[in-house]
């Protein structure tokens, strides 16, 4: 169970990292490919992260949709290692 939950935090970290490494804007299809998730899992994660304000959708001049990190998303990336340290140290 621990690994499953840890995986969840890791998956979110990976998604954010991919977005950040693509100059903070990436189309949904390559993001799905790089994140190594099933299409339904990816949709679930994106919906949740969007609802919680970690990511948001933007569109370019031609109306193409991109996913980008919000400040909260960047905060997660910044704090991720420390939070993992806290979870490990306190066996949470």
């Amino acid at each position: 169970m621990n690994n499953k939950k840890r995986d969840r935090l890791e998956v979110i970290f990976d998604i954010f990292k991919i977005i950040r490494d693509h100059h903070n804007s990436i189309k949904p299809t390559p993001l799905l490919r790089y994140s190594n998730l099933s299409s339904s899992s990816f949709s679930d994660y994106c919906a949740e992260l969007r609802a919680k304000g970690f990511i948001k959708d933007i569109a370019d001049d031609k109306g193409r949709k991109y996913i980008t990190l919000t400040d909260k998303g960047f905060k997660y990336l910044e704090k991720y290692k420390l939070i993992l340290g806290l979870i490990d140290e306190f066996e949470l």
């Binding site: 905060k75 704090k79 420390l82 939070i83 806290l86 979870i87 949470l92």
Partner: peptide, 17 residues
């Protein structure tokens, strides 16, 4: 002190702690 960690992750273990 642990508020931000929980707010960012909603991790159940942090919540109980």
């Amino acid at each position: 002190k642990t508020r931000e960690s929980y707010e960012l992750t909603k991790y159940e273990g942090i919540k109980y702690f």
